[in-house]
Amino acid sequence: MKKAKTKGPFVKFITPYLFLSPTVILMLVLLVIPIFLVIQYSFFNNAIVVKEPVFVGFSNYVTILTDSIFWSAIKNTAIFVIASVIAHITIGMCFALLLNTKYFKTKTKYIFRIIYVLPWMFTASVIAILWKLMLQPQGIINYLFQFVNLATKDSEWLSSRTYALAAITFVNIWSGYPFYMISILAGLQGVSEDLYESSALDGAGAWKRFIYITIPQVKPILISIGMLDIVWTIQSFAVIWMLTGGGPVRTTETISIYIYKYAFNSSQYSLASTAAVIALIVCIILAIFYVKQQRKARE
């Protein structure tokens, strides 16, 4: 019988690193290097388009943080994100409760599950084209609103400085709620029926059961998807760009549109990188909260 060869200390040492190396290399190339480059660009006068960019310290940060358009973009982003996340949670919860109810037959629930999840199936370009057609002055929204005297055939939504931000927020809510619905539904299906039965015996009504049983049971899911949604909504770009391009007169210019315009309209890559780094810091803070919450939930 052959004796198994014992590995040398170097092989033993290197083996776990070799197993890790494909992932580490991928993360380096796709994550660490691009982030490092963007941070580096933010400290130069104008990276990429200038052959020998000059180090300017925090000058770009001062420029961005004293730019009124940046703060207007932050304000628009905040409104867009807060309204979207609250509406996503509310609509997602309502539809999830509807789909989890015992009053409908399983077949009915399946049909409605498919219908409710449809907006999530569309790509950003389809969503933008669809809503642009519906929200244009000659679109179906104005046609329907005319019946209840809420609009005329010339009413503007995407091109109105008053309503444009609300319009793109609505489109974002419409396209994003199914993710909440599916996640909350999965959480609701995991809530023990015993809890509801014992609370019913104690005389708790539907509202109290919802507040004291349903919400606490799905709270970890709500916090997790809420955190993720904040980060995703901050980064929203495609739908806003295709619907309004940040207009009219910057009323729908969110931080992602602001960064894009600096980079690709004005070729100011360093300033774009600086704004991107600021957005990255906000997202990292949220990510830390998310990880902490996940750890707490596991414990």
Binding site: Q136, P137, S159, R161, T244, V249
Partner: peptide
């Protein structure tokens, strides 16, 4: 006078 097509800022 309403001679321009509505929604010009997103047209």
């Amino acid at each position: 006078a309403g001679y321009l097509y509505p929604g010009m800022s997103s047209l």
